[in-house]
């Protein structure tokens, strides 16, 4: 049996029907149709499904949709303001941190959450904060550079480009 629930995703309320055991990742992808959130394992090992819940990076494949009622959910689609990309998104593009793009949404959201707490993280802080987001393409180097660069963009020390 499905139950009705209201989820706030990217600032908008969605009235949805989902089974009580449904995971947030599936509700976001299948029911709402926001497919930017990726599913690389479904059991909490890869970080591809990361979304922000009340600002905290959270694995949506381990989170029940029902548990998110009344919370603010931000997916990759909601990070940018319209066509104005978030500094992390800009930095990922500028630094060549994107290859296949499958890990990218989760990686970008984890990085955005880190920089909200600390816009001048050290390399080690970046590596620790993002160690739960796996990427098999890039070898991580350009992602670390992008996160550093995004921090500079946020703190106004560098310009896009």
């Amino acid at each position: 049996m499905k139950t009705l629930l209201k989820l706030n995703i990217n600032g908008e309320d969605f009235d949805l029907a989902a089974s009580p055991g449904a995971y947030l990742v599936d509700v976001i992808r299948e029911t709402v149709g926001l497919t930017g959130t990726k599913k690389g394992c479904g059991i909490g090992d890869c970080g591809a499904c990361t979304v922000l819940i009340d600002g905290r990076p959270t694995l949506s494949c381990l989170t029940l949709a029902l548990a998110c009622v009344g919370k603010e959910i931000v997916t990759i689609e909601g990070l940018s303001k319209g066509n104005e990309l978030h500094p992390v998104q800009k930095a990922f593009i500028d630094k060549g941190a994107v290859q296949c793009g499958f890990c990218t949404p989760g990686m970008v959201l984890s990085a955005a959450a880190l920089l909200r707490e600390n816009d001048r993280p050290s390399r080690d802080e970046i590596k620790t904060a993002l160690a739960g987001n796996l990427c098999r393409c890039t070898g991580y180097t350009k992602i670390v550079e992008a996160v550093e660069h995004a921090g500079q963009l946020i703190s106004g020390e560098a310009h896009h480009g």
């Binding site: 926001l34 990726k38 689609e77 990309l85 998104q89 593009i93 060549g96 793009g101 990218t104």
Partner: peptide
């Protein structure tokens, strides 16, 4: 890369 902006937005 033309795919990069699309990929960072999912």
């Amino acid at each position: 890369r033309k795919d990069a902006p699309k990929k960072v937005k999912g």
